[in-house]
């Protein structure tokens, strides 16, 4: 346990030192504030419009950005240490491979988690102070759900990054694969599902369940399904309005999504030759 904390602490300190935490916080906060303020620009207005529109826009932004940040942050977690020779050294220390990977995961998870909470949190505070007529309770609940689900989504993709990182032996290849994973989950899956939706003429009751096969869709469902305003924006997720698709069910599912790639990464790492 001590070893895990030591590794996590070092990883987090690395993240502070090479400005990952600062950069992620700033990017998320600036974009979130920008969206809140210029959300109505399309309809010719300026200034804060409605909470629902803002949250839907934020979720749409997060679904692209958070997985990309997570993959970039963690794709070299193992293969990078292997290339610099420190992995070989770490493996000769009294630390199990499981502890090694979990410690790193905790550190990276903390970097992304704190930066996301801080970035969106700042945006939430700015909205609360600057916008008129916002119900603070609703804002807090909406922002809270967005932050929690964003952090979970980030962890899922950190776990994916680890799976890539233990699988390949070159950093460049890991980076390439990370982009492929992002592309597949964030863009291609959506298009494929849309095509399927259009082509299936009748009896497509099973289609909504396919959404569960992609963590980014889960994230969308969590944040969008609750809003009337979201229907027009999202198209796809509107097919999935049922009892099973509530945040209370979806959040644990998203958490489970993070365990699958992490478990596979652990298995692979333990049987990987030094």
């Amino acid at each position: 346990m001590n070893a895990i904390l030591t590794l996590a602490g070092k990883e987090f300190r690395d993240g502070m030192r090479n400005r990952w935490v600062l950069a992620i916080t700033l990017v998320l906060a600036l974009l979130a504030v920008g969206i809140a303020w210029f959300g109505a620009a399309a309809s010719g207005g300026l200034g804060f419009t409605s909470l629902a529109t803002t949250l839907v826009s934020l979720a749409t932004l997060a679904v692209f950005l958070i997985p990309l940040i997570a993959l970039l942050l963690a794709y070299d977690a193992v293969v990078g240490e292997q290339e610099s020779g420190t992995l070989l050294l770490l493996l000769t220390y009294p630390v199990s491979r499981t502890a090694l990977l979990l410690g790193k995961f905790l550190g990276h998870g903390l970097i992304l988690g704190s930066a996301t909470a801080l970035g969106f949190g700042i945006a939430g505070v700015v909205i609360a102070l600057g916008a008129e007529g916002v119900a603070l309770g609703e804002l807090a609940a909406g922002m809270g759900l967005l932050i929690v689900s964003s952090v979970l989504l980030g962890w899922v993709f950190i776990a994916f990054a680890y799976l890539i990182s233990v699988w390949v032996s070159e950093k460049a290849r890991a980076a390439g694969l990370a982009l492929v994973v992002w592309f597949l989950f964030v863009l291609v899956f959506d298009l494929g599902l849309l095509a399927l939706l259009v082509s299936v003429k009748q009896g497509g009751d099973w289609l909504p369940w396919l959404l569960l096969l992609n963590p980014t869709e889960l994230f969308r469902l969590i944040n969008l399904a609750g809003f009337e305003a979201a229907r027009s924006y999202t198209g796809l997720t509107s097919i999935a309005v049922g009892g099973a698709f509530r945040p209370a069910v979806l959040l644990p599912l998203l958490a489970a999504w993070c365990l699958v790639p992490l478990g596979l990464a652990l298995l692979r790492f333990r049987h990987r030759s030094a």
Partner: peptide, 23 residues
């Protein structure tokens, strides 16, 4: 090890403290 480049953003003492804690 033969070829090892330690964590460059950390100071020499921080690197050694990290390894000391692990050991």
């Amino acid at each position: 090890p033969e070829n090892v480049s330690f964590y460059e953003p950390l100071s020499g003492r921080e690197v050694l403290e990290f390894f000391a804690r692990l050991k």
